[in-house]
Write a protein that binds this DNA or RNA. Structure first.
Lengths: 226, 226
DNA sequence: TGTATCATTATGTCTAGACATAATATGAGG
DNA sequence: CCTCATATTATGTCTAGACATAATGATACA
């Protein structure tokens, strides 16, 4: 095994097992290098990776210390609905309901914006109601896309690489109309996911997805390191 | 500025701006080294960081390529409730409702498990209802902790370092009893957060938190790199 | 006693070179 | 034209050494 990897995994194991507790001092690079019979740069690389993963904290002169665990973050799977439903082994379908161009600024998306409304179906049943705004200045091609054939989210995936996004998740009771469209009882709980997507500091698209509470869970995992 | 950082940021900017598109070939390390007047190891480090951040993909012999954006993940803030509420400038309070030892396996938590039920308050009003199981074999000290004075989540933070966790988030309608406890109308939408926490492959604690839908949003962000 | 200065120390970064590894490209033989 | 072996190439990893940087602790001075 690589020395760098070995050192890294050894320290990571000691931290995760609780043998080294938060705040504990990690041996100096010199010491680790001598103990493992390798160059200091190799140890430094291993410690650098651990620091990047958040397991240790390095301070000049002071040394390297086991970091305090960050309980506040987890990686959430934000699925492309077509993929998600296909992964469940159900048939996916998208149905466009309405589309028009908004010339006023709406919902954090600067005008002119293309407003697209539609429904995602899984196995023939309504799954999620979507209302989306696409900034036409950022994605002019969107005006020519056929959103009857393809959901705008799926289309955008292939047309705007490398964006940043912010999601807000909340539980809501749908309006009477939304409940009817989703085929759930009025006041049944639904999960609302609002996603705003940016590129180079400018909003590209904003979408609100309303999920049937009984058919959708979000999952998030936190694994120290990796 | 550091050469390594400069190279890294330059390439990251080119990718994020869309100048280099997914699948594009990044210049070879030799080329970048020559262009920036530095050693190949320096370029290699920069590319390594970009690869770790997921912006590029490196393949032996083939070269380095702009990666395809992963739309499926975002970092979610999973707050410690005491901190979250304090950050809002509201007064936090915890109230223990019930506590007993379960000798049967319940809710993914192996017996013997300490079952703790209580309520989190913000500014005097009910905020979240919590049902927690703590594996006593993993955290024997929990039997002696005073969960009337301190919420078990807060207590655990100081007693079990470096765990892994899995969260499931869903929208639910509370039972009549839960609604009454939370002080919301029956059938008002609530956000349910289930968290299972592991250490060294064994479940440490499992908690179900039921939030008032009108007082709590979850936020998740995705930023390419960093 | 309090403060400024300086040497020490551990990390941070870099270099030039070396060898390993794996995937591609090339060419020989069928 | 296809297939297999070989050479090439770009990344992966490592070394030994160097200098930079920042924080600590000791020392000298006011």
């Amino acid at each position: 095994m690589n020395p760098a990897r070995r050192i890294r995994d050894e320290i990571a194991a000691a931290i995760r097992s609780g043998e080294w507790r938060p705040g504990d001092r990690v041996p100096t690079e010199q010491e680790l290098a001598a103990r493992h019979g390798c160059a200091r740069a190799t140890v430094s690389k291993a410690l650098g990776e651990l620091a990047a993963a958040g397991l240790v904290e390095r301070r000049r002169k002071a040394g390297t210390f086991v970091a305090h665990p960050p309980v506040h973050s987890a990686v959430m799977a934000v699925p492309d609905l077509a993929e998600l439903i296909a992964a469940r082994g159900e048939v996916y379908r998208w149905s466009l309901k309405a589309m028009r161009i908004e010339t006023d600024g709406v919902a954090q998306c600067p005008p002119p914006a293309l407003r697209v409304e539609g429904m995602h179906f899984a196995a023939g049943e309504a799954f999620a109601l979507e209302t989306r705004f696409i900034a036409l200045d950022e994605v002019p091609d969107a005006a020519n896309a056929d959103f009857r054939a393809e959901a705008p989210g799926t289309w955008l995936l292939g047309h705007i690489p490398w964006t940043e996004a912010r999601h807000v998740i909340r539980a809501v009771t749908p309006t009477r109309i939304e409940a009817a469209q989703l085929g759930v009882a009025t006041r049944a709980a639904c999960l609302e996911l609002d996603r705003t997507t940016w590129r180079a500091g400018r909003v590209v698209t904003h979408v609100r997805q309303l999920f049937r509470g009984d058919r959708f869970d979000l999952v998030a995992e936190f694994n120290a390191g990796t």
